[in-house]
Computed example of a mutant assay.
Amino acid sequence: MTNLVLTKTKLRQGIWEGLLSGAPQDSTPMLDVVHQGTQVPDVTVNALENGQGFSVCVPIPQEAIADGMQTILISDAASDTQLASITLMAGEALGDDLRVEVDLLRAELDMLKRAFRRHCLETS
């Protein structure tokens, strides 16, 4: 099992970009990118020319640009391990960081529910 590490490099013009390391260069890793239980389309994972990992581009869906807190989770599809999260805040300023933590917990709970359901289907 590999230890994937996803590091954000920038967020610009609605595209989140990161560097994925720890994956073998002979096969492109599959990522699971989810916003409110829905897969984010058009995510790209490309090997770097220098062979030192993969570039990851996640287009921010229009649905994530809304008032309040929005979280997009990026996970390794093979192991359901969360690699990164993208948090967007808009509209009225949030009173404290507690709302941010609750939103992250909800997103992680959704990921755990999917993994548990998949596990139940595979073992039945």
Score class of each variant (00 low, 15 high):
M1D: 13
T2Q: 11
T2A: 12
N3A: 11
N3M: 07
L4D: 07
L6D: 11
T7P: 01
T7W: 08
K8D: 08
K8A: 14
K8S: 13
T9F: 01
K10N: 15
R12H: 15
R12W: 13
R12F: 15
Q13I: 05
G14R: 12
I15N: 01
I15C: 01
W16E: 09
W16F: 14
L19E: 13
L20N: 06
S21H: 00
S21G: 00
S21C: 02
G22R: 03
A23K: 04
A23F: 05
A23H: 08
A23W: 06
A23G: 11
P24K: 10
Q25P: 02
Q25M: 14
D26N: 07
S27P: 00
P29V: 09
P29M: 09
M30A: 12
M30W: 00
V34C: 03
Q36C: 06
T38A: 10
Q39D: 11
Q39V: 11
Q39G: 03
D42M: 14
D42P: 01
V43S: 04
T44E: 08
T44G: 03
T44I: 04
T44L: 07
T44Q: 11
A47R: 10
A47C: 03
E49G: 15
G51Q: 04
G51H: 03
Q52N: 12
Q52D: 10
G53Y: 09
F54H: 10
S55P: 01
V56T: 04
V56F: 03
C57V: 05
P59G: 01
I60A: 01
Q62W: 10
E63F: 07
E63Q: 15
E63T: 15
E63D: 15
E63W: 08
A64N: 03
A66N: 10
A66Q: 14
D67C: 02
G68H: 03
G68E: 04
G68T: 03
Q70Y: 02
Q70P: 00
Q70H: 15
T71D: 07
I72G: 10
I72R: 10
I72M: 09
S75T: 09
D76R: 03
A77Q: 09
S79A: 02
T81P: 00
L83Q: 15
S85H: 10
S85N: 09
I86R: 06
T87F: 06
T87Y: 05
A90N: 13
A90E: 12
G91R: 12
G91C: 14
E92G: 01
A93D: 10
A93F: 08
D96M: 04
D96R: 02
D97L: 11
D97A: 13
L98W: 11
L98V: 14
R99Q: 11
R99F: 04
V100W: 00
V100K: 03
E101Y: 08
V102W: 07
D103R: 15
L104C: 11
L105D: 11
R106C: 12
A107S: 14
A107F: 01
A107K: 06
E108K: 15
M111S: 14
M111H: 13
M111W: 05
L112R: 15
L112W: 07
K113G: 03
A115C: 00
A115H: 04
A115Q: 05
R117F: 03
R117Y: 04
R118F: 00
C120L: 14
C120P: 01
E122T: 06
T123D: 04
S124G: 10
S124K: 08
